[in-house]
Each structure stands twice: as C-alpha cells, then as structure tokens.
Design a protein around this nucleic acid. Structure first.
Length: 792
DNA sequence: GATAGCCGGGG
DNA sequence: GTGTACGGCTATC
C-alpha cells in the first residue's frame, strides 16, 4: 500500500536485517516523530585500475572475495577534473568494506582504493540527495506497519519548532574526582524548550518545586529516560556531555545492570570514540554538546559554564565548589536545596546557550547535508569537506582519500607566506578613510579559478599567482570555485531577501546568511588544511599571493594616481589620509580601483575617521565621525589588569584621539603615578581579578591569583574553580606572585606602589607613548628626551 | 625562537 | 563503525 507523508529529517542510522543494511530515517512533522525505512541502498567503494579495466574487474571477481562482492561496474568518473575509469564495487553490508578492501587492493592491476571510508548513512544522504531539517515529501510503502521509502521530493516550508531538552547531572564525589564505579549520580536536571523544568533526585530536597524525588539512583535514571521519551525530544543538549555526563551515565547504567532507552525506537545510550574524544550517541535524536561549539565560536580565556554564560548571555551565575558537591548532598537541608537549585540553573543556562547556537547549526546541517548530530561535531574544515563531497558524487567526481602517515606529516610541516601587513605610520594621523575588500579570499578563489584540477605548475603565464610558479587554467571552471561561487551567490540572494523582510523571517535568514558566510570563508583554510581530501598547498599559497598583490596594487593606485598617503593596511584593508574638503576622492578612488579589479573582486568603502593612533602592525586606535573609539590589539579589557591601568590607558587614548595633545596625556600619566605613590587611590582601582579555572592543586606554575586563592582557603573561605579571585600586590622581598593578597583582607597601606607603576600603568601605556616618541623615563620622571621635538 | 608535550570542559 | 581531534599554551632548550 502506497502513501505520501511529509516530514523533516532529524537523524539517520541503519540496522541490519537478513545480512542487509536498512537505513532508518528519523523524521518529525507537526503531528510528531516517525521512522521511515529504506532497504534499497547498497554500500560501495571504488578501485582504480592501472591497466585494462575489464581485465582488472575479472581478476577481482575471480579472486577470493568470500562472496562479499555483489557486482562491479566499470564507470567513467573524474579525479581532480581528469577523466578516469573506475571500478565501482558494490558489497552486501557496510562492514564488508573494511574486510574486503585490503584484499582487493592487493589484486594485480589495482592502483588505488577510493571512497572506502565514507560512512554508510552519510553516503546514503549524499547519494539520495536528502538534506536534514528541510521539508520533504516522501512516498512510502506500508509493509506490515513499517513504512519503506519509495521516493523523496524536497519542498519549501519552514522547519517546525524542534523539541529541545537541556540536560545536566550532579555526581557524588567524596574523593574530589568522581569514580563511576563507586560514586552514584545524585541529580539529573532537565530544562526544555517547552518550559518543562525538573530536578530528578533520590533524597529529600525541600523548597524547590521542580524537584521530583525517586526511590533510588536507578529509578531516577529510568525516570529521566521516560521524560525524554514522553517529551519526544528531537535534540538533547548539554555542556561537556560528550566527555562527562553521558559517559558517566553510561558507566552507571552498566554498573546498575539496567537498560536506559534514551534514543528513539528504544535505543540505548551509546558512548563511542571520535578520535581520542568520546562521543555520546542518542539514536533518532541529535545530541549536541555545546562546549566544543562555544569553543569554536568565541574566544575566551576560560570555558567553564559560568564564564561562558556571563560572557554570552550576560547571566551571572554562582558556581558551587565542584570538589565539595558531595558535602552539599550529605549535609541535606538548605545545602541540598542549594545543590538542587544549582543543578536546575545549569540546565536552564545550557538551554539558553542552545537557543543561541542551534539555529546556526540547523542551517549548517541543511546546507552541508549531514545530520545535526554530526555537523555539531565538525570543524570548519570538515564542514567544507562534507559540502564538497555532496557536490562531488552527482558531478561524477571521485572523492580523494584523506592523507595518512608520511603524506600527512609532509603536509602538516609545509608553510607559506600569508597576508600583507603594511608597516603603519606611527603616531597620530588626522582624517582617515578606510577601505576593505569584500570577502577577498573567496573572491580570489572564484575569480582566479583556483582549484587542484586547474593548477599548472611551472613554465606558465596566464592567470599566474604573483611571485609563484603556479598558474590556474580558465578553460573549465574548477570544482571548488564552482561550489564556492554558488555559495557566495546564495549568500547575496539571502542578504537581499533579508533587507526586504522583518521579524522572525529576517532572523531565520540571518542564520542562513551566517552559515553561508562561515562556509565560504573556510574554503581558503580548507585548501591548506593538511587533513583535507582536496588539499593543495599550491592553491592556498596562490590565494594568499593574489591577495597580497591586490592590496599592494590598491595601495599603489592610492599613492601614485591619487597622491593619497596610505598610513596602514592589513591583508584586505587599507587606511588612507583624505582631508574633509576632498572627500569626493573616496568615491573616485573606489570607482577607479573597481574598474581594474577582475571577476567578483571588489573594494568597499568602510568609513571616515576623524583621527587615528598607530602603534605597530595590528595595534591601533581610531576615532569615528560620531565619536566612537575603535581600538585594535591594544585593549586591556581583560579583567586581569587593575582598573587603574585600564582606565589610564583608555583616558590616554581618548586624549590623544580627541584632543591630539600628547603633553596632556603625559601629564595625566604623571598624575596617576603620583596618586599611586601617595596612596590616593581606592582599593577597587588596584584590585586585579583573575578567574580560578581549576583546582588550586592542579596549577603547575604558581600564579598570583592562585596564591591569593590559597590565602583565602587558609582563612576558611570557600574556594572553587570558576571563582573570580580579586587580589592586590603587596610590598615585600618575595617574588610578585607570592605577594598577592586577597582584596578581602587588604587595606590601602598594604599595596606596593612601585608594582602598580612599573607592572600595571607603564606597560599599559608604554607602547602607545613610544609611538609618539615619548620614553618611559619621560613619563615617569619628566626627563625630557631630545628625540621628542621631531615628532611635533 | 623553535619545538615538544600537555590540556581543556565536567563533579 | 565504510572511523579514530585539535589548537593553544607552557616548559625547556
């Protein structure tokens, strides 16, 4: 019996029935979740014949393949853009591939085995053209209550709200680090997209309405699985759940001898290995660990949940001492209540983090064409690679192998020159116009057709990378440029549509746009990524060389044709002096430049700035027309600088940029130094805050904040990883780190003025003053330097 | 300054 | 599961 269903793919895997792999597609529509089966797809890989394909085919068929080979087709394929006859070897079961490929590679006349390591379900999604999280119409056949796929058509339509559950566990740890063989899980907290909040536990907790007390750890875990099953969640999220929570749950489940059906179709929680890292799999759902995702997207000093949440969501969250959680449990009463609240808070903020990142990863999953579960674990290089693989097969391109051993080592050690950075004109510069190239690296790849298949090495002229012996044929568009062009084009279309839409639609489009941007910007890095299947150092090197040529060419046009002074530039940008009365030059210059740029390479006008202060390459500050300061590479926004140093730096920059008065800035510095010497400062101004990221014991080098934390502990204060330690540096003969005193115990007479002057104030402003010709001595003591006059 | 080795998050 | 991370920081020469 045939019928049609609609749904969105959440996850996919396969089961084995009668020796054959049957794909299971886990889908959701507005009515709920369901599974579609497909037994019509067989695993295969390729062998490249070194001589007559038919003869090699016969040799394989007559060799000892233990009946695993179903058939061998001779196919006309391409490898790096060149025609290549390949033998497609179809086998019965995915696990036959590793068993048989070694034997076939030893058959006479077999040059190479290709596409042997592409996991069955991922290959299935590519070959069937199925994209996760997009609307699909599926023609299915009902066989004894199971729906088998006959045909699939993609359609339009917005993804229904995914059901998301954020999960966190607390563990009994009387010895500090919990041992899964002995120490039970004491709480499981859950917060879901539908607003359900629960803390499951097995001892009495008072005053927390979300708490549900079960009889035992075992009952608690089973209740957890039941809640996930009942809520029919598509996505389970957590923080470091791949490495901690789920492996721990898995161990306890084994120990207790129970079954924990967290997955759809009653599938057990599985913990396997992805590289050296564990990975927890919940079949039929996506398990998304937000810890690696946050690490990929934001640069922070520490990724403990508390600081991540403060940084990204502005939520200040108390951390309990992880070492002593067991005591909260044992003590009961208010302490246990605190533990339960802490557990719930962890699940809540994890859900909030998921709301921030999941839409982007859903887009990436659809575009790249692999499951959300997999895409959530991919680096940008892997995202590009799976995108390329999806395009390769329908184009008849064979997928190259990943490098191993010596090949990888050779690639990894290869280096080449990167972007061009112009030495800045140091000091204060008036009236600056900033220009930058739009998506320079992707534009170069597309415009110069940079691809492994178009690369010509040595003795070539046309479309040659500047200063290198590499040219790129323009006869046929390369595989990578073609895909990248489509991506860039789609991004342009999405941006256009964004401009015309609002509200939820616009927000959705912004994630699509961001996903396309991430992918487009990763292509250059991909070609130079040593593990890439389509790696080609010469290509990455050429992209960088073209970029250097373009930015230098633009600088030359500015200087020679327009008589403009270029004061700075980095990779794809240039900073030019344009006085207010000659502003029309900016547009003229832009037009002149873009006339001369090939393909899609385009310079854009970024903005006018009243003034700039250039210190060194990558360290400068600008004052915009509307009075905003833009500071690069100079900022001591980090909290491990005393506020007085940060404030002084900021004020110095402000005076230099707004008033262009170095003497006034120098006077300010001397005043601050004087204030420090006379102790006319507040404790707040001199307190340095540093986060304790781990246990005191596990610090190898003794840093000041660790010493301060030790002193806190000695005086009976609770100290936990994730805590922000505030301290001042006191006088004395010991090394600086030993002189850290927790601010709680400090008074103004304790601090060491010379430390604050020499190690805080002066380093923060020294580089800035050096750029305008002032020395440290001049600032500190007022000793005049003869070199000064030439700067003013 | 190069290079080898370690470590992250979680309780 | 058709498989086996990675990038940044510190220590040490």
């Amino acid at each position: 019996m045939l019928r049609t269903v609609e749904g969105f793919l959440i996850d996919a895997d396969y089961e084995t029935a009668e020796g054959k792999a049957v794909v299971r597609l886990y889908l959701r529509n507005s009515d709920g979740s369901f599974v579609i089966y497909d037994d019509s797809f067989s695993p295969y890989f390729y062998a490249l014949p070194a001589d007559e394909p038919e003869r090699v085919r016969e040799r394989i068929l007559t060799s000892d393949t233990a009946g695993m080979v179903r058939h061998i087709n001779v196919e006309e394929k391409m490898l790096f853009g060149r025609p290549r006859v390949a033998l497609r070897i179809t086998v019965r079961h995915p696990q036959d591939v590793p068993r048989i490929r070694k034997r076939i590679s030893e058959v006479e006349g077999v040059e190479q085995i290709l596409e042997h390591d592409i996991l069955f379900v991922r290959r299935y999604l590519i070959d069937r053209g199925i994209r996760p999280l997009t609307r699909m119409r599926l023609d299915v056949e009902d066989r004894n209550g199971r729906l088998f796929l006959r045909n699939v058509v993609h359609g339009d339509g917005e993804l229904p709200e995914l059901k998301v559950a954020a999960v966190d566990i607390e563990v009994y740890n009387p010895r500090g680090a919990p041992r899964s063989s002995k120490d039970p899980i004491i709480m499981v907290s859950i917060a879901t997209s539908e607003g359900m909040e629960k803390v499951l536990t097995w001892k009495h907790v008072s005053g927390v309405e979300e708490v549900e007390v079960l009889d035992s750890e075992e009952e608690m875990l089973l209740r957890f699985a039941e809640l996930i099953e009942e809520g029919d969640y598509d996505v389970v999220v957590g923080y470091n759940t791949d490495s901690f929570d789920f492996p721990y749950i898995r161990e306890r489940v084994k120990k207790l001898g129970i079954s924990l059906p967290l997955g759809r179709l009653g599938a057990e929680l599985e913990v396997s290995r992805r590289g050296t890292l564990p990975e927890a799999r919940i079949r039929g759902r996506a398990h998304v660990d937000l810890y690696p995702i946050v690490r990929r997207h934001v640069k922070l000093n520490s990724y403990v949940l508390e600081s991540v949440v403060e940084e990204l969501l502005g939520i200040k969250k108390q951390k309990l001492d992880g070492e002593r959680l067991f005591a909260y449990w044992d003590e009961g009463g208010e302490k246990r209540t605190l533990l339960a609240r802490y557990a719930l808070e962890d699940a809540r903020v994890t859900l909030a983090l998921a709301e921030k990142f999941l839409p982007l990863y859903c887009e990436l999953s659809t575009i790249v064409g692999q499951s959300l579960n997999d895409v959530a674990r991919m680096t940008s290089g892997q995202l590009v690679e799976w995108l390329l693989m999806r395009y390769a097969t329908p184009r008849g391109e064979l997928i190259p192998n990943r490098p191993a051993g010596e090949e990888y080592a050779a690639r990894a050690s290869a280096t080449y020159t990167g972007g061009y950075v112009r030495e800045p004109r140091r000091g204060i510069v008036e009236h600056i116009a900033v220009f930058d190239f739009r998506s320079l690296y992707p534009s170069i790849i597309v415009s110069h057709n940079i691809d492994p298949s178009t690369l010509i090495v040595g003795n070539c002229r046309e479309n040659r990378a500047p200063g290198l012996e590499y040219c790129f044929s323009t006869e046929r568009e390369g595989f990578i440029p073609a895909i990248l062009r489509e991506l860039v084009h789609r991004r342009g279309e999405v941006k256009k549509e964004m401009a015309e839409s609002s509200g939820e639609r616009r927000k959705m489009l912004s994630f699509t746009e961001k996903a396309l941007k991430i992918l487009a910007n990763s292509f250059y890095g991909y070609m130079g990524y040593p593990r890439a299947r389509w790696y080609r150092r010469e290509c990455a090197e050429s992209v960088a060389a073209f970029a250097r040529m373009y930015i230098k060419q633009v600088m030359r046009i500015a200087e020679e044709e327009f008589g403009l002074e270029v004061v700075y530039g980095d990779t794809d940008s240039l900073f030019v002096v344009i006085p207010p009365e000659r502003r029309e030059l900016a547009q003229e210059f832009l037009m002149r430049v873009n006339e001369s740029m090939p393909g899609m390479i385009e310079l854009e006008f970024e903005g006018f700035y009243r003034r700039g202060l250039f210190v060194t390459k990558k360290r400068y500050a600008l004052l915009s027309e509307d009075g905003r300061m833009v500071v690069k590479g100079l900022e001591f926004v980090r909290r491990d600088w005393a506020p007085i140093a940060r404030e002084t730096q900021r004020e110095v920059l402000r005076i230099l940029l707004e008033e262009a008065d170095p003497e006034k800035a120098a006077r300010l510095v001397r005043e601050v130094i004087e204030r420090i010497r006379q102790r006319r400062v507040s404790l707040e101004e001199i307190t340095i805050y540093t986060q304790l990221t781990k246990r005191i014991k596990s610090y190898r080098s003794i840093e000041p904040h660790v010493v301060a934390a030790q002193k806190l502990k000695e005086r009976g204060k609770e100290v936990a990883p994730g805590m922000i330690i505030g301290y001042i540096i006191t006088r004395g003969p010991k090394p600086i780190s030993q002189r850290a005193l927790p601010v709680e115990f400090a008074t103004l007479k304790d601090y060491d003025p010379e430390y604050y002057i020499d190690n805080q104030i002066l380093p923060a402003i020294q580089r800035i003053f050096e750029a305008i010709g002032y020395t440290r001595d001049y600032l500190k003591e007022g000793i005049t330097q003869t070199s000064l006059s030439r700067w003013f």
